[in-house]
Lab assay of single mutants.
Amino acid sequence: GKMTGIVKWFNADKGFGFITPDDGSKDVFVHFSAIQNDGYKSLDEGQKVSFTIESGAKGPAAGNVTSL
């Protein structure tokens, strides 16, 4: 299901970062391709987001990332 969290950091040049889930679980990798907006796909440190957990090739990653 949907989770919420805070963006820990995001490197716009490399197109990835990490989200710290509100439930205290392990930080989740986020790739820019998972960001659900029409414009420039980037996130800001400290931004609140909702997301799902998808299993990627390198382990769990955030999917369906939407800013709240």
Rank of each mutant, 00 (worst) to 15 (best):
G1D: 14
K2R: 09
K2N: 13
K2Y: 11
K2W: 07
M3K: 15
M3E: 10
M3Q: 14
T4D: 05
T4Y: 08
G5N: 01
G5C: 00
G5D: 00
G5L: 00
I6S: 12
I6W: 07
I6C: 13
I6R: 14
V7W: 02
V7H: 00
V7K: 01
V7G: 00
V7E: 00
V7I: 08
K8V: 02
W9G: 04
W9R: 06
W9V: 07
F10I: 03
F10D: 03
F10K: 03
F10V: 04
F10N: 02
N11H: 07
N11T: 03
A12V: 11
A12C: 12
A12I: 07
A12M: 11
A12R: 14
D13H: 15
D13N: 15
D13C: 14
D13K: 15
D13W: 15
D13M: 15
D13F: 14
K14T: 05
K14Y: 07
G15F: 01
G15C: 03
F16W: 15
F16N: 04
F16R: 04
G17S: 01
G17F: 00
G17M: 01
F18K: 07
F18P: 01
F18M: 07
I19S: 00
I19K: 00
T20D: 03
T20N: 06
T20W: 04
T20S: 13
P21V: 03
P21T: 04
P21R: 02
D22P: 02
D22S: 10
D22G: 05
D22C: 08
D23Q: 09
D23T: 11
D23C: 08
S25C: 09
K26D: 11
K26F: 06
K26C: 11
D27W: 01
D27C: 04
D27K: 03
V28K: 03
V28Q: 03
V28H: 03
F29Y: 10
F29R: 06
F29L: 05
F29H: 06
V30H: 01
V30L: 08
H31V: 01
H31K: 05
F32D: 11
F32S: 12
S33E: 07
S33F: 02
S33M: 05
S33H: 05
A34L: 02
A34V: 08
A34W: 01
A34G: 07
I35F: 06
I35N: 04
Q36V: 14
Q36D: 11
N37L: 12
N37V: 14
N37K: 15
N37Q: 15
D38V: 12
D38R: 12
D38S: 13
D38T: 13
G39E: 10
G39P: 09
Y40H: 11
Y40W: 14
Y40V: 13
Y40E: 14
Y40N: 15
K41G: 07
K41Q: 10
S42K: 14
S42G: 10
L43Q: 00
L43N: 00
L43H: 01
D44A: 14
D44M: 11
D44V: 14
D44E: 13
D44C: 12
D44Q: 14
D44N: 12
E45A: 15
G46F: 04
G46K: 06
G46R: 05
G46I: 02
Q47V: 09
Q47I: 05
Q47T: 10
Q47S: 11
K48V: 10
K48R: 13
K48M: 12
V49L: 03
V49W: 00
S50Y: 05
S50L: 06
F51A: 01
F51M: 04
F51N: 02
F51Y: 11
T52S: 11
T52R: 08
I53M: 13
I53N: 05
I53H: 06
I53E: 03
E54L: 14
E54A: 11
E54S: 12
S55I: 13
S55H: 15
G56Q: 10
A57Y: 10
A57G: 09
A57L: 14
A57C: 11
A57H: 15
K58H: 08
K58A: 08
K58D: 09
K58C: 07
K58S: 08
G59F: 05
G59L: 04
G59R: 09
G59I: 04
G59Y: 06
P60W: 09
P60R: 14
P60T: 09
A61V: 14
A61M: 11
A61Y: 12
A61K: 15
A62K: 02
G63C: 14
G63M: 13
G63Y: 12
G63E: 10
N64K: 11
N64I: 03
V65Y: 01
V65D: 01
T66H: 13
T66S: 11
S67E: 13
S67W: 08
S67C: 11
S67Y: 08
S67L: 15
L68F: 12
L68E: 11
L68P: 06
L68W: 10
L68S: 13
L68V: 13
